[in-house]
């Protein structure tokens, strides 16, 4: 797919806006405005991940870059107060954004978005499993201690 970097940039920007809209309005000024990654870790993670994803989806489609960026974001949203559907909704928002910016998405892009969505499902489940596993591990350690 040949989309110029500038367009990918615009797509990323709009995509970020939409995703941030899933957070309470009170937090927007911080999430959007603060540029220091340590004062605004969540906003930073969202921006970074989505920018990478937009560029990859509209460009090279490098598997490992996508996996890393997606993981960082899904990992965050998996522990925030979202239902699973809301946690992953941001992926499907990309379709609307692309329509807004470049018109109807080409077939290839549709496929890529679907691919990414499936990947995100896996990652989300992996995160939730990991959380369950970590819980169990802590509980087990505690039981062991108590038994000692």
């Amino acid at each position: 797919m040949s989309v110029s970097g500038a367009i990918a940039e615009i797509v990323a920007e709009r995509w970020i806006e939409r995703t941030l809209a899933s957070y309470p309005a009170e937090a927007h000024a911080l999430l959007c405005g603060e540029t220091d990654p340590f004062r605004n870790p969540a906003g930073h993670a969202i921006k970074q991940s989505l920018t990478t994803l937009a560029h990859e989806l509209l460009g090279e489609m490098e598997e490992s870059a996508i996996a890393t960026a997606l993981d960082a974001l899904v990992r965050l949203r998996a522990v925030q107060d979202f239902r699973p559907s809301d946690a992953l909704r941001f992926i499907f928002d990309l379709r609307d954004v692309v329509v807004e910016v470049i018109g109807a998405p080409p077939q290839a892009l549709e496929i890529r978005i679907d691919e990414m969505a499936l990947m995100a499902f896996d990652q989300y489940m992996a995160c939730r499993d990991q959380i369950a596993g970590l819980r169990e591990k802590e509980l087990r350690l505690r039981m062991q201690c108590a038994a000692k």
Partner: peptide
């Protein structure tokens, strides 16, 4: 907690 949850 605010930074992690965005809960006002």
């Amino acid at each position: 907690f605010y930074l992690g949850s965005s809960d006002p």
